[in-house]
Design a protein around this nucleic acid. Structure first.
Length: 557
RNA sequence: UGGGGCGUGGCCAAGCGGUUAAGGCACCGGGUUUUGAUCCCGGCAUCCCCAGGUUCGAAUCCUGGCGCCCCAGCCA
């Protein structure tokens, strides 16, 4: 993980902020993370959270959590609470209470009145289609709305009546009066307020039938909160002139500065709220926290740690370039954290019974095994050893591929933490399938190297009499192509049908019996696993977070 | 074809007129190892989208191309 001696990795935004601080433009940095509560947070939000909160934290400033709740149709409190949970889980604290853009609706309304009074906003009666026609195209200028030059007094009266609920949805809007011929379409008299009757807003209830748009709400909310640097993604770059326009023409207490960075694109996943919502709604996954989802909740259930996610965000950096980050980046971050912190355990995923013919029937040997190979402070636990064991089917081969160093007929292998054994006999059923192995131990090899030969293979095992049966869920990428939905196809066609494999008869070493949901372990030679909340006292359920790096399994078995 | 951005190795990304063009991920060797893990050592861009130009000197400045992304919601 990040070495304390190593300087904080920087990026162009941090450089701008530090320069502003150094120049005295601001004496304290204030940022904000502004999610719309219309879905769960995903890995892309984690990048923004890490940037906004991380920047404020490291520079002694403040980062506000502000819900951008201007479109009550799609928002709800479940999402508000889930978002708070996720931000906290990532390890960040926001300044004061969580805020809502809706906290400012009254002030925002007042600012709109200010614009009207200056002749900078007007009530327009064009409907949506007409407005589109009047807006022009990318290459042709728009035409002024017939309502553009209404007298101030009339606009004031109409706007008040809009608020009073006198007009139906869609019949009027309040528009900024900027420039219908602007090459930047966002400046062609954008809508500031629209009418929405009959929606119960999760914060303001039925107090309003008038809702401000993002373009109006965002800059003014930033200014109200004294945000110094308002960080957003590249698609808002075109909106910056409008952002600045709003702040300049209204009696707001500060002048925030918007800076844009590129959003994260992670291979083999989708990170668009629309698509994630569909995956959940259409049942392609089990919910927002399905371990295959790139949501924070999904990654948490998958076994990712806040540390790994934050480290990942540090590693990918913050720039304005289009990017497509490889999964390997994310996986490397979680492996680094878990390698250092996850206690080791033995778990047999696909059991094959082994009977040790020269080991006493009811003798149980308790072997002490270190919980971590290079961190003694993690202690040790006892593992029972007996005559009957389970090993993984993949660790035995009747006809081994070249280079195989596990168990083969007549061959020897080291049982991790225990003896070296030799496979003496292969027992098959009527169908010819291997059902059991009969083997013998070399009693002189417990904690010692065998004499006169070297045994290169080491495999894990579990004593049959003491094994804890469990379910293990192996997850793979949700999509089978790096860019789902590329080339205009439906991203749903790229869903990987084998993204989940459930193993129902796994055998775990007994110390895993009482593991609690959320606990993480390394199953030696397999990977990192976390206890799923679906676990019961009788039957634990583990999710594979990520496998171990495997330089053998790549081209072989 | 209007406007706004971006273009450094397979991926991410430093670089801010003088560096042998950081670092991470991935990959390829080699060593240690009772996890084919970890760890350690080594390799991996004579070149920075292309072409001109300025300069003693350019990935960094200028000009012209080319490529890619975003914008015509009363979404954010």
């Amino acid at each position: 993980m990040t070495d304390a001696a190593e300087p904080t990795r920087t990026n162009f935004i941090r450089q701008i902020v530090e320069a502003d601080l150094a120049a005295g433009t601001h004496d304290r940095v204030v940022t904000r993370f502004p999610p719309e509560p219309n879905g769960y947070l995903h890995i892309g939000h984690a990048k923004s959270i890490a940037l906004n909160f991380g920047l404020a934290e490291s520079l002694g400033g403040q980062c506000n959590l502000r819900f951008d709740d201007t479109n009550p149709h799609k928002e709800n409190v479940e999402f508000v609470e889930a978002i708070k949970t996720d931000v906290r889980w990532l390890g960040f604290e926001w300044g004061g209470q969580a805020r809502f853009a809706s906290d400012y609706f009254e002030r925002l309304y007042g600012f709109a009145v200010e614009l009207i009074e200056q002749g900078l906003a007007y009530v327009c009666e064009l409907d949506a289609e007409q407005m589109r026609e009047y807006r022009g195209t990318l290459t042709e200028p728009g035409r002024p709305s017939p309502w553009r030059d209404r007298p101030v007094a009339e606009n004031l009266e109409l706007f008040a009546r809009m608020r009073a609920g006198e007009f139906p949805d869609g019949s009027r809007t309040l528009r900024a009066r900027i420039d219908m011929a602007a090459p930047n379409i966002n400046l062609r008299d954008p809508v500031l307020y629209r009418i929405k009757h009959g929606v119960i807003h999760h914060q303001t209830g039925d107090a309003w039938c008038l809702y401000p748009t993002y373009d109006f709400t965002h800059p003014l909310s930033d200014a109200i909160e004294g945000v110094t640097h308002s960080l957003c993604t590249l698609e808002f770059e075109d909106h910056r002139p409008l952002y600045d326009w709003c702040v300049e023409h209204v009696s707001v207490p500060s002048r925030p500065r918007q800076i844009e960075f590129s959003r994260l694109n992670l291979e083999y996943t989708v990170t668009s709220k629309r698509k994630l919502t569909e995956l959940v709604a259409e049942g392609h996954v089990d919910g927002w926290d399905d371990p295959r989802m790139p949501t924070i909740a999904g990654l948490r259930r998958r076994g990712y740690t806040p540390t790994a996610l934050r480290e990942f965000c540090e590693r990918i950096g913050v720039t304005k370039s289009e990017n497509r980050v490889e999964m390997a980046m994310l996986e490397s971050a979680i492996r680094d954290d878990l390698d250092a912190h996850a206690p080791r355990r033995m778990a047999v995923l696909r059991p094959l019974k082994v009977v040790l013919t020269n080991y006493p029937e009811d003798e149980v040997l308790n072997i002490s095994a270190a919980n971590h190979p290079k961190d003694e402070s993690m202690g040790s636990r006892e593992i029972p050893f007996g005559r009957e064991l389970y090993i993984d089917r993949a660790d035995f081969a009747e006809v081994p591929p070249k280079g195989f160093k596990r168990l083969v007929p007549g061959g020897e292998v080291r049982l991790r933490n225990a003896y070296v054994i030799r496979c003496d006999e292969v027992v098959k059923d009527a169908a010819g399938e291997v059902v059991e192995l009969r083997a013998s131990i070399d009693p002189a090899t417990l904690g010692c190297k065998p004499e006169g030969r070297k045994v290169k293979g080491v495999i894990h095992w579990v004593a049959a009499a003491h094994a804890v049966a469990a379910e293990v869920r192996l997850y793979d990428r949700l999509f089978r192509v790096a860019m789902p939905g590329a080339e205009g196809q439906d991203y749903r066609n790229d869903i990987n049908p084998d993204s989940l494999e459930v193993l129902v008869d796994c055998m775990l070493e007994p110390s895993l019996g009482g593991a609690q949901p959320g606990e993480r372990f390394q199953f030696e030679r397999e990977g990192y696993f976390v206890v799923d909340p679906d676990s019961t006292a009788q039957r634990p359920v583990f999710n594979r977070t990520v496998g171990l790096r495997d330089s053998w399994g790549k081209g072989n078995g």
